[in-house]
Amino acid sequence: MSKRNQKNRQKQKVNYIGGRKSFVRILEEMNEQDPNLIRFYKEVHWSRKKGCFITDTAEHNYKLMLERLDETEVNTENNNEKCNAAFKEVLGHRSGYAKELGHSVIPEPSIALHKNRDYLRIVEENERNKN
């Protein structure tokens, strides 16, 4: 398993510098201020110590996003939507992607799980705790 993980790690073209914080946590913190995916990308790929992007690929992707954004008409009302569209155009987008909870999508449980007594008990307990 360790060897497989090492091989997979070497395949990465762009590293992540968020440390222990997950993408979702950083994105949620930024969404409270301004839901802009291009700013989010820079936040998780910019080294404050070095004052530059951590890889050339990360810098290239960021510049492509800015180019795509410049190609569109700037409208302050829909600026975040245009930033998010440029982000998805450069990096791609998987509909319903939830492996790392990308785009804060939480998948629906399967039909079989709805019939599971333990699952139903936990759901009921969660609802009580929310209140």
Rank of each mutant, 00 (worst) to 15 (best):
K82E: 08
V123W: 05
D70L: 04
N131D: 12
K7Q: 15
S104V: 09
R117Y: 12
H93K: 04
D56L: 09
N15Y: 14
L120H: 08
N31S: 08
K50D: 14
I38Q: 05
V105A: 00
M30D: 12
K42Y: 06
I122N: 12
E125T: 14
N5A: 15
N78R: 03
N116H: 13
D118S: 13
R9S: 15
L69D: 02
S110H: 09
S2Q: 13
E124W: 04
K99Q: 14
V44N: 06
H45E: 03
Y97L: 11
Y119R: 08
N78H: 01
T76R: 05
A86H: 03
K99A: 13
E127K: 14
K13T: 15
F53Q: 09
S22K: 09
E108R: 11
I111W: 05
D56F: 07
L64W: 03
E59N: 09
K42P: 05
V123N: 08
D118H: 14
L113A: 13
M1T: 13
P109R: 05
R9F: 14
N61P: 02
S104E: 07
F87I: 01
F40W: 07
K3G: 11
T55R: 02
Y119V: 09
D70F: 04
D70A: 10
K130T: 08
G19Q: 04
R9A: 15
I17F: 04
H45G: 07
S47Q: 06
Q10Y: 11
N36T: 02
E59P: 01
R4K: 14
N31T: 06
K82W: 00
E29S: 09
R25V: 01
V74Y: 11
E81I: 06
N15S: 13
D70G: 00
N129Y: 05
I106A: 05
K115H: 13
N131I: 05
F40C: 01
E67R: 06
Q33H: 01
L64K: 10
N31M: 04
